[in-house]
């Protein structure tokens, strides 16, 4: 149960981080959204054996961490949540792709290289997405999506789903507490009550969501979140976008680590 409460706390931690006032937080949400999407596209576009080319892209999350004044541990912990999924996707590669490649003086299976490439790609994309939420806040991301003319209904869906998570977790933690107090010595919830537990949970969360929705309606909600931000995109924001796009494009076209390696080995030779 404490784990559930912790996840609720962590879920809200991202909201809290989104309210900071650092250089990165001040960048227009639309610019941050486009930069992140561009970054994700560049990361994904790398060929599966190209690990070295990906490495310079690590500068982007590092830059956001530093200038966004964000705590590293809680954000990287979130990355660990998706780690089993990433490993699950990539772990079969070493088994299926047995062809060897020579790196330095060592022969390595290509499967391990693709596995490593999947790990790096997933790590970078998930971190970039978490950093976007942590430096922008979900409401401002929604604002950016509306500026991109994403239909109101989809944006609302996203926002309410995000809010609904916490309602769901709160209700689950209340029910688990009530259960564990009357079922001492049991680990988890016995499978005989799984059905009724889930059923009651759905009814409770529907009820709760209904009350929250009523309270929104009573305060004039008509299907659109109005968050009061009306910031304009400035030249600085534009410059921020251009610099990153330039950097990502260069990294995509040229394999920078390889070039540096050639320069150094050339100098040494």
């Amino acid at each position: 149960m404490s784990t559930l409460k912790n996840s609720l706390y962590h879920l809200r931690l991202l909201d809290d981080l989104g309210k900071h006032n650092s250089f990165i937080h001040k960048v227009h949400p639309l610019i941050k959204l486009i930069t992140t999407v561009f970054y994700l596209a560049v990361v994904i576009s790398f060929e599966r054996y190209d690990v070295s080319g990906l490495l310079p892209l690590i500068f982007y999350p590092m830059f956001i961490f530093l200038l966004g004044e964000l705590p590293i541990t809680p954000i990287l912990k979130r990355l660990l949540i998706v780690a089993p999924l990433i490993i699950g996707i990539g772990i079969m590669n070493p088994l299926f792709d047995n062809s060897k490649v020579l790196i330095g003086n060592i022969y390595i299976s290509r499967g391990w290289i693709t596995f490593l490439s999947i790990l790096i790609k997933c790590g970078l994309t998930v971190t970039a997405s978490i950093l976007l939420v942590a430096t922008t806040g979900i409401n401002r991301i929604a604002e950016a999506l509306r500026m991109l003319k994403v239909p109101k209904i989809f944006v609302l869906q996203l926002l309410l789903t995000y809010r609904y998570f916490s309602v769901l977790i709160e209700e689950v933690s209340i029910m688990i507490r009530a259960y564990s107090l009357r079922a001492p010595g049991q680990k988890g919830i016995h499978r005989s009550v799984w059905g009724s537990f889930t059923g009651i949970l759905i009814i409770r969360t529907f009820d709760r969501a209904q009350r929250v929705y009523q309270s929104m309606n009573l305060r004039g909600f008509r299907g659109e979140y109005i968050n009061g931000y009306n910031s304009k995109i400035t030249f600085k924001d534009f410059l921020y976008l251009m610099m990153w796009c330039f950097f990502f494009t260069i990294v995509r076209i040229y394999n920078i680590p390889l070039i540096i390696d050639r320069i150094f080995t050339g100098v040494i030779n």
């Binding site: 809200r12 909201d15 809290d16 989104g18 309210k19 806040g137 409401n139 809010r163 709160e170 709760r208 009350r211 929250v212 009523q214 309270s215 929104m216 309606n217 009573l218 305060r219 004039g220 909600f221 008509r222 109005i226 968050n227 009061g228």
Partner: peptide, 30 residues
């Protein structure tokens, strides 16, 4: 509904934004 303001029995049902300010601003913005 602009003339009638209702405070719910459970304040958790009424507070759903990320900060107190945002919550209090929710109605006027709408």
């Amino acid at each position: 509904r602009q003339q009638l303001g209702m405070v719910f029995q459970n304040p958790d049902d009424q507070l759903f934004m990320t900060s107190v300010y945002e919550d209090v601003a929710f109605g006027p913005r709408n």
